[in-house]
C-alpha cells in the first residue's frame, strides 16, 4: 500500500511538472494569436505572463517588437537587450535594437577602442588569450629552468613573458569589470503607458516621488544600480511600499534615485 502511495505521488509530481512546463508554450501561442488578431495589449500581457515562468529569445524579441509598435521604446529596448543576452549573435535583433535606440533618440556611445575591444563581447577572447599565455609561459619557464643549462634564454623569456602577461591580463580584468557591471545594468522605461515619447524619467535627489530631480533621462537609457557596502543593491523603501534604487549612468555623470517600476533588469536579479 505504501509503495502504491509513493508511486501515486511520483506520477502526480511528474504530471504537475508537465503542466507547469507546458504553461509558457500555451501563453506564447496565445500571445502570437492575439497579436495576429490586432490585440497588441493582450499579446503583451500574455508574453509578460509567459516571461514570469520562463524566457526565450523569441519571446523577448516578440515582446520588444510589440512595445516598439506601441512606441514604448524604453520597454522595447529592455526586451531587445534581454533577447540579445540569450542569443548574442542574432543580427536581426541587433539591428532592431539599434533602430529602437535611434527612434528613442538615445545617443549611442562611440565605437572607440575601450568600448569595442574591452567590452563583454571580447571577454572570452581575452580570457582564452590570458590562459594560453599564462600556462604556455609557465611551461616554457619550467623548461628553461630545468632543462637548459644556459640561463640566458630564461632571463630573456621572463623579460618578454611578464609584460605580455600584463598586456593580456589587464584587458581581461577590464572586460570582466564590464561583465560585472552588466549584472547591475537596468534599462529605464516609463512606469505606465508611455505613448508620449518626449517624456523623460527623473533621477531624484532623494528617494521620494516629490523630491526634485537631479537630472532627467530618456526612457531606454541604461543605468547602473549602485551597490551598498554589504554588497546588496542600494535601496530605500518609501512609506507607500515602493522601493527606490540609487542609480547612475555608465559615465557617472548622472546619478539619482529611481523607483522600481521605472526600470527593468536586463539580467534576472535575485538581490533585494
Amino acid at each position: 500500500m505504501k509503495i502504491k502511495i509513493i508511486f501515486l505521488y511520483f506520477y502526480l509530481f511528474i504530471f504537475a511538472q508537465q503542466l507547469i512546463w507546458g504553461q509558457e508554450d500555451r501563453l506564447f501561442y496565445d500571445a502570437v494569436r492575439a497579436e495576429a488578431s490586432g490585440d497588441l495589449d493582450l499579446a503583451i500581457r500574455l508574453y509578460l505572463e509567459a516571461s514570469k515562468l520562463s524566457h526565450s529569445t523569441n519571446l523577448h524579441g516578440n515582446l520588444a517588437n510589440l512595445y516598439f509598435k506601441k512606441e514604448q521604446f524604453g520597454h522595447a529596448i529592455l526586451h531587445f537587450r534581454k533577447a540579445l543576452l540569450l542569443q548574442p549573435k542574432n543580427s536581426e535583433l541587433s539591428a532592431n535594437l539599434e533602430f529602437a535606440y535611434e527612434m528613442a533618440k538615445i545617443p549611442r556611445s562611440s565605437n572607440n577602442f575601450v568600448n569595442t575591444y574591452l567590452s563583454t563581447d571580447f571577454m572570452s577572447f581575452w580570457i582564452i588569450i590570458s590562459t594560453v599565455i599564462f600556462w604556455g609561459g609557465l611551461l616554457f619557464f619550467l623548461y628553461f629552468l630545468f632543462f637548459k643549462t644556459n640561463k640566458k634564454p630564461l632571463f630573456y623569456f621572463v623579460l618578454m613573458w611578464t609584460p605580455l602577461g600584463i598586456l593580456t591580463f589587464y584587458p581581461t580584468v577590464l572586460s570582466l569589470n564590464q561583465q560585472a557591471e552588466l549584472n547591475q545594468e537596468v534599462v529605464t522605461h516609463l512606469p505606465s503607458i508611455e505613448n508620449n515619447n518626449s517624456r523623460s524619467i527623473s533621477l531624484r535627489r532623494f528617494a521620494g516621488a516629490q523630491s526634485s530631480a537631479n537630472t532627467t533621462i530618456i526612457p531606454g537609457e541604461s543605468l547602473i544600480i549602485n551597490l551598498a557596502k554589504d554588497g546588496n543593491n542600494k535601496t530605500h523603501k518609501s512609506s507607500n511600499g515602493k522601493t527606490w534604487y540609487l542609480a547612475r549612468s555608465k559615465d557617472g555623470k548622472k546619478k539619482g534615485w529611481l523607483r522600481e517600476d521605472e526600470f527593468g533588469w536586463i539580467v534576472d536579479h535575485t538581490k533585494n
Binding site: 509558457e24 524566457h55 529569445t57 523569441n58 540569450l86 580570457i127 582564452i128 552588466l182 539580467v267
Partner: peptide, 14 residues
C-alpha cells in the same frame, strides 16, 4: 517560442 531557459543569466567563460 524557441528554446526556453529558466533565468536570464550573465554567464561567462569563467
Amino acid at each position: 517560442p524557441g528554446e526556453w531557459v529558466k533565468d536570464i543569466k550573465n554567464l561567462t567563460l569563467l
